[in-house]
Simulated assay, not measured.
Amino acid sequence: MGLHIVKTLYDMYPGQVTVTPFFNNLIGNAWISEGIKNGMTVEEMKDHWEAELEEFKKVRKDYLLY
Rank of each mutant, 00 (worst) to 15 (best):
M1N: 07
G2L: 06
L3K: 07
L3V: 13
L3T: 10
H4R: 15
H4N: 14
I5V: 12
T8N: 07
T8S: 08
L9V: 02
L9D: 02
Y10A: 08
Y10S: 08
Y10T: 08
Y10K: 08
D11F: 01
M12K: 07
M12E: 06
M12F: 01
M12Q: 08
Y13G: 02
Y13R: 08
P14L: 05
Q16C: 15
V17A: 03
T18Q: 11
T18I: 13
V19D: 02
V19H: 04
T20S: 10
T20A: 01
T20L: 04
T20R: 03
T20E: 03
P21Q: 01
F22G: 09
F23M: 03
F23H: 04
N24V: 00
N24W: 00
L26Q: 10
L26S: 05
L26G: 05
L26F: 09
I27M: 08
G28D: 06
A30I: 09
I32D: 00
S33N: 01
E34A: 06
E34M: 03
G35L: 02
G35Q: 01
N38E: 08
M40S: 04
M40R: 07
M40E: 02
V42P: 02
V42S: 05
V42A: 10
E43W: 07
E44A: 13
M45Y: 03
M45F: 05
M45C: 05
K46M: 03
D47F: 07
D47P: 02
W49V: 14
W49H: 06
E50Y: 11
E50F: 11
E52F: 10
L53S: 15
L53A: 15
E54Y: 11
E55G: 05
E55M: 11
F56Q: 10
F56L: 13
K57L: 00
K58Y: 00
K58D: 00
V59T: 11
V59Q: 07
R60W: 04
K61W: 12
K61R: 15
D62Q: 14
L64I: 15
L64A: 12
Y66E: 12
